[in-house]
């Protein structure tokens, strides 16, 4: 596995060993970013974790919001998981772009994996898991 490491990657290392996943054979960089500079979609209760601020360099990321009710929103448009790849294809046609997931912290793990699998099938190589910083003590 030729993962390039990113900050705090260790927290998510176990993704690597889920059975899903031939898809994981592909280069997949998963990192955690903080939320503040992302556009607001539907309100989701983001997990709290300290992470690096976003880099403004590179291709513009695609933001997917995953609500507690397991709705996937592309921008503010809900997209069914089975239709997600069709909606992403034109956005990825111009070359690779990172995808940021704003997932509710109460989401079932399996659902998140389903989304990751779809993204990986689409050839997405960089996935950002969006968090908010932990409360300052």
């Amino acid at each position: 596995m030729a993962f390039r490491t990113a900050d705090d990657f260790d927290n998510l290392a176990e993704i690597n060993i889920t059975p899903l996943v031939d898809v994981m054979m592909v280069l997949l960089i998963i990192f955690i970013v903080t939320a503040p500079m992302l556009v607001q979609g539907l309100q989701v209760d983001l997990p709290r974790a300290s992470a690096a601020a976003l880099s403004q360099k590179g291709p513009e990321p695609i933001v997917l919001t995953l609500t507690r009710d397991r709705l996937i929103l592309l921008g503010d448009q809900p997209v069914h998981l089975k239709l997600l790849s069709g909606k992403l294809a034109p956005l990825l046609a111009g070359g690779p772009r990172p995808v940021y997931l704003k997932g509710d912290q109460a989401l079932p793990y399996g659902f998140v994996i389903d989304v990751l699998a779809t993204l990986n099938r689409m050839g997405v190589e960089e996935i950002g898991m969006v968090t908010v910083p932990p409360p300052t003590p």
Binding site: L71, P78, H80, L83
Partner: peptide, 11 residues
């Protein structure tokens, strides 16, 4: 409300 959002999510 969620049901309607699911209709929206399929187009």
């Amino acid at each position: 409300g969620l049901t309607r959002q699911r209709w929206r999510s399929v187009g």
